[in-house]
Write a protein that binds this DNA or RNA. Structure first.
Lengths: 342, 342
DNA sequence: GTGAAAGCGCTAACAA
DNA sequence: TTGTTAGCGCTTTCAC
């Protein structure tokens, strides 16, 4: 495959000139430029980006670490990131961590070797120490969602405590007394925050917090199904369930229907995320929506900005988006709802 | 950041030895090796993969071009590919083409510069000429789904003609006489193949093929919705609709319900893809399932094999997976179905 | 088992 | 406006 030297030779110019045609065309005479471009065309020349990266110490590549690409939430974030990245001339290295801290660490190691220009970590499970492996190398980093530890980094997230609080409070407002929570894996900070919001709402009205009513799921439909089954087998099964994500809420709905119960008449459900599926299930799922596409956009813009203009050491951004309660059918009590919302 | 020379100096060995420790540790004496590893640790050395790639002419990176990451079908394929890639030590460069031929071409250009080791193109819209830009450079390439043109490449796909034929035939078997088709964008070969399957089934029983009954959608829920609306406004609206993907089928269901009609009583629906959502909508969607995760696995294995063992010039694989009819509720006529399937 | 040095293809500083 | 050349950090061949 043709390289810059061969092009230079054939065009009867120096390699520097060929390089200039590519990178600073304004610094080359029109005549020379045309000649060089013609030769490039003729030789079917494609500049070697690897050599370029080595010389410039820049890869125009961003690492994207996602917990689970099969959860429809994340492709939405990824889309936001991709839109910005592509527009700014960056490529995305996709890494599916499977909510596995080991795999995530391994990936960081690989990506550091690949000399990516920046990292976007979504709902990362990394510890401070691992994050600092990136920061210490002065590589730009933006996180999306909460992270395990409280670290000085740019971060874009939804107020999960508040979202969970809203969801729970809504169920309380409607009149439910026994409200359970299906949590995501507790290793994830976000899930612990959602529990905090759930408990906060209960405490406010002096309702009991029972450990039996908090079940750890796996963020998947299957886990929601299993968790709901457990809840149904309790001596005092709940009247309402707040699930930490829509996928688990949908799984829970399946379990409830499977047990011959009606939603929301026998048990009410609220989810979290507002994925598209949630408006399609029967009954439509009441949920907390977070602006995920926008989070992707913002995070990517922030990252590109950091890469290109340098991180300002001191001013780490904590961008904090508001969750929003989306009332549909699965939480029940239409009259009561009408009363509240009109 | 520490480089190999600094490590060598501190460890009092040559750079060649440091390189050997990394790449051919068996060729280094234990003592030297330990010394070098200790220094690496101490200096917090991370090998520069870019320099490595330049020297080896190999990036351990695979380009993945996806039409639309928001269509749940593709993350499933991507998961299959990622699983293999990660296991084999490759990274994935994610490119969302948005079913836009121009964007896809642009991406190919970028990726060629990045010197990826291989390409996986999903439902590509590229023309022969563009594909050959890759092939001529002797870069491995595997396609998933049909491609626009008939080219000699490794390709993994589902038999779309057959799938569409099965879907249509099933509707015919149940007894519907007026069967419409909501197609995906006609620029996509797969969609044209689905039309062929649809028409084949109709012809076989000497049913008319009416152009009014074939509407081009956009592969999205919204497009299915609009297409169904058009079909409902026809003088002779169809009794059944076969949609080229589940997303459009779901949109169509929405339109039909919105018009006050019952599914399947007034209009029956069959989709294509068997995405998870399809089992959750009401009524559950009858559809054609394609083994997408598996397609991703197979394609990635094939690609990695080509990369590592060299393409055998002659023997291009055409791997051909079977679609399968998944009967649920949306196509109706339970008695008739029971009769057929028992 | 180890080291010296060429080379991978490019960019940019410097000189002309 | 153009050319010469020294890197960028690594791998590998060849010699010892």
């Amino acid at each position: 495959m043709a390289n810059i030297r061969q092009v230079a030779k054939k065009a009867e110019v120096s390699v520097a000139t060929v390089s200039r045609v590519l990178n600073h065309p304004e610094a080359v005479s029109i005549k020379t430029k045309e000649k060089v471009l013609a030769v490039m065309e003729e030789m079917n020349y494609t500049p070697n980006g690897i050599a370029r990266s080595l010389a410039l110490n820049r890869t125009s590549t961003i690492a994207l670490l996602i917990p689970n690409i099969l959860n429809p939430l994340y492709p939405q974030v990824a889309k936001g990131i991709e839109d910005v990245a592509h527009q700014k001339g960056y490529n995305l290295l996709l890494c599916n961590t499977e909510e596995d801290e080991e795999k995530e660490k391994e990936y960081v190691e690989m990506l550091l070797e690949k000399r990516v220009d920046g990292f976007i970590l979504i709902s990362s499970l990394l510890e401070k120490e691992d994050i600092y492996k990136i920061k210490n190398r002065n590589i730009s980093l933006v996180m999306i969602g909460s992270c395990k530890e409280n670290i000085e980094v740019d971060i874009v997230f939804t107020d999960y405590i508040k979202g969970a609080y809203q969801a729970t409070q809504h169920l309380i407002d409607i009149g439910y007394k026994k409200i359970a929570h299906i949590s995501g894996p507790l290793k994830g900070m976000e899930n612990r925050e959602k529990i905090m919001g759930y408990e906060k709402a209960l405490k406010e009205v002096e309702m009991d917090i029972s450990k039996d009513y908090i079940i750890e799921g796996d963020n998947e439909i299957e886990g929601g199904y299993l968790a709901a089954k457990k809840l149904l087998q309790l001596k005092k099964p709940p009247q309402a369930i707040f699930a930490a994500n829509d996928l688990m809420a949908i799984g829970a709905m399946d379990a409830i229907k499977g047990a011959g119960l009606k939603i929301p008449d026998n048990i009410a459900i609220v989810g979290f995320d507002n994925i598209r599926m949630s408006a399609l299930v029967d009954p439509k799922l009441t949920t907390i929506s977070q602006p995920v596409y926008k989070m992707g956009l913002i995070a990517a813009r922030l990252l590109v900005d950091n890469i290109e203009n340098g991180d300002e050491e001191d001013a780490k951004q904590r961008i904090f988006l508001q969750p929003k309660l989306k009332v549909r059918k699965s939480c029940g009590h239409e009259d009561r709802i009408r009363e509240i919302f009109n």
